[in-house]
């Protein structure tokens, strides 16, 4: 966390010069007064400057990154985090060698980490920042695989005229399949069963 101590004739002056040095806005920091200024006698003898300590507040993204870094360290894996900001989500991508352990079976571990990081980062925050984790583009690759699978199965359903039940998937993955086939002329999709075993059914349109 970035900290800066500054002196000035008034508290206001001291805070401003600290802000200038840190290069941040007032709303991003909190400060503590270390020494109150005093004019001293006749403004000369014993005059003291104000002294403040200005600390840059940790943002949700800072908290997320340090949390994830700590986890990776304790697992003994070397990772680098890349943060990508878009309008309503923050994407955090892990890069490094041998990160399969962070993905887990069908992305189970990655989903668990993502759930936890969202909790940790948004604790005590008024507004929520949604975070999406990815490992070496795993989510994108998985999405493409699912889209291909959806097209292939839709074709099979069309030819055979019989419905096909897919294996259980998480909500995000089901969504990919529903979206891929929503404008398909020959088939429609529904979900059946209860979480976490909810699965998609692709059925022929009559």
């Amino acid at each position: 966390m970035k900290v800066c101590e500054k002196s000035g004739r008034t508290i206001e002056d001291a805070v401003n010069s600290a802000l200038a040095e840190l290069g941040v806005e007032r709303s991003q920091v909190e400060f503590a007064v270390l020494e109150e200024p005093s004019k001293g006698l006749f403004g000369i003898i014993g005059a003291k400057l104000a002294k403040v300590k200005v600390t840059v507040k940790a943002t949700p993204v800072d908290r997320a990154c340090s949390f994830l870094q700590e986890i990776a360290d304790s697992m003994g894996i070397a990772v680098k985090l890349e943060v990508e900001n878009s309008d309503d989500v923050v994407k955090i991508n892990f890069t490094g060698d041998d990160l399969g352990i962070l993905i887990g079976r069908r992305g189970d571990t990655l989903d668990a980490l993502q759930y936890l990081v969202n909790l940790v980062a948004n604790r005590k925050e008024e507004s929520r920042v949604r975070m999406v984790l990815d490992v070496e583009g795993y989510r994108r690759r998985r999405e493409q695989t699912l889209q291909k699978l959806a097209m292939k199965l839709a074709d099979k359903v069309r030819r055979r005229g019989q419905e096909v039940v897919l294996e259980p998937m998480n909500p995000h993955e089901r969504r990919v399949i529903h979206t891929t086939l929503q404008n398909n002329r020959f088939v429609y999709t529904t979900s059946q069963g209860e979480e976490p075993f909810r699965k998609i059914v692709i059925a022929p349109k009559k």
């Binding site: 304790s74 697992m75 189970d108 571990t109 668990a112 759930y115 936890l116 909790l119």
Partner: peptide
């Protein structure tokens, strides 16, 4: 949350 914690620890 407990489930997510267990998943991460099991991965490690």
């Amino acid at each position: 949350i407990a489930k997510a914690i267990r998943t991460v620890v099991k991965a490690a």
